[in-house]
Amino acid sequence: MNIFRLAGDLSHLLAIIILLLKIWKTRSCAGISGKSQVLFAIVYLTRYLDLFTTYISLYNSIMKIVFIAASGATLYLMYVKFKATYDHNHDSFRIEFLLIPCVILALIINHDFTVMEILWTFSIYLESVAILPQLFLVSKTGEAESITSHYLFALGSYRALYLLNWIYRYMAESHYDLIAIFAGVVQTILYCDFFYLYITKVLKGKKLQLPA
């Protein structure tokens, strides 16, 4: 565990907490893509199956359980408790366009042709693009509340920090995982445009509004 990895995990945790608090405090999930949240739930469930097979550390197990639980809670709030506030019409990204290519890619490019390994690989590929329905929703409505921007910034920073972690681990431990690195780079690139808007607008107290 190095500082980049820890910062990445904490950023990920912060993002999830911000999202849950936003929905809970405002009693609304307006501006949040339920489809991205469904994809994240699939990511956690397919990746953290190893909770049952491999013990790594208490930290590792607790974080996995927290991510799965928080993801389930988010889906419950969006699709059950505050369903009336869900932005159906704008959340129109077709997730099969992400799911199917990720399944195919995981079957072709993986470390090992076993069920666990393919599910892990699928979850890595899917995570890299899971934010697209959310970014699509923001681009459709043309704006995002500040709290939603903070959520997206924390969530995007997490994988960017993991990239630093992988560089560090490559140098310090000669450890690397090409699938994770490739997907992590793609994931971070998808946030770049948002990062730019966040830094130039939201941090200066302005609302995140896309140019018309």
Binding site: R5, Y170, D177, A180
Partner: peptide, 10 residues
């Protein structure tokens, strides 16, 4: 350098 696939990350 050998690629390691041990999944100790989240």
């Amino acid at each position: 350098v050998k690629e390691c696939t041990k999944k100790d990350e989240l």
